[in-house]
Amino acid sequence: MTAIKTENLTKYYGKNRGIIDLSLTVKKGDFFGFIGPNGAGKSTTIRTLLGLINATNGTAEVLGFNVKENKTEILKNIGYLPADASFYKGMRVKEILKLSSDLRGIDCSEEAKVLCKRLDLDINKKINELSLGNRKKVGIVCALQHKPELYILDEPTSGLDPLIQHEFYTILQERNNEGATIFLSSHILSEVALYCKNAAIIRDGKLLACDSVSNLSHSDVKRVTLKGAAEIPQNDNIRDLKKEDGITSFLYNGKPDTLIKELATLRFDDVTITDPELSEVFMHYYRKDVEQ
């Protein structure tokens, strides 16, 4: 079963690009990271999935329902956290949480209490008095209190302190273990690498890669570090070249055997060849387009 499935999803804002031909599948039970720099189209994709904006082209299905036709049905089973969580000014946290559950027609007060305690959120404060991080917590409780099947979280941890971030991910993992699907967007690679099973990379509105986090990290790209090397010949396969204290390091995007052949022509004292960090893979995709 798929939780999210988009086919050639395209969104233009007038002439401005949102996303182009985005085809993405997220399985039920997945913990999925959606990575990309600012303005890549992460929020556009998410907002299209929720029916907040209409796609220019292509189709999107969430939990087996078409986004255009069964929006209300979909929203019943989704917990959504917007990137910029804003609420009605003048209302108290507990009133917002109550309103959210009332709009769903269910009583979530018990779960809300537990979540507020775990996230250290004071429910008697007024929205206007809250810091960015605490406002984010209100959004998180709204997205989690009704225990939906699918969580769509747009940059969930921005503004949260490390302790709360950790607690938040612990809760998400508990929900994921109970069978819920998590779909979160982020530009913080370490959290995606740490918690997500699968991930997609988006840039300039286009999907660049979609695979398991371990496969993405073990791609054809290798991080090569040479000690005591002289000049490195310029080569299309070499990127992110860094020289420091006699140590030369670069990303190599090519077949391993050609790498070894090319290394054989050089003089150096020591070599290590490793899989790059997810962040380096990301930078690799990121740069490839810049250079093109």
Binding site: R47, L52, T72, Y80, P82, F87, K89, S100, C142
Partner: peptide
């Protein structure tokens, strides 16, 4: 007031 996202992401 940027509350449309909050309201319209509920099943209504």
């Amino acid at each position: 007031h940027n509350t449309a996202e909050f309201l319209l992401s509920h099943p209504i």
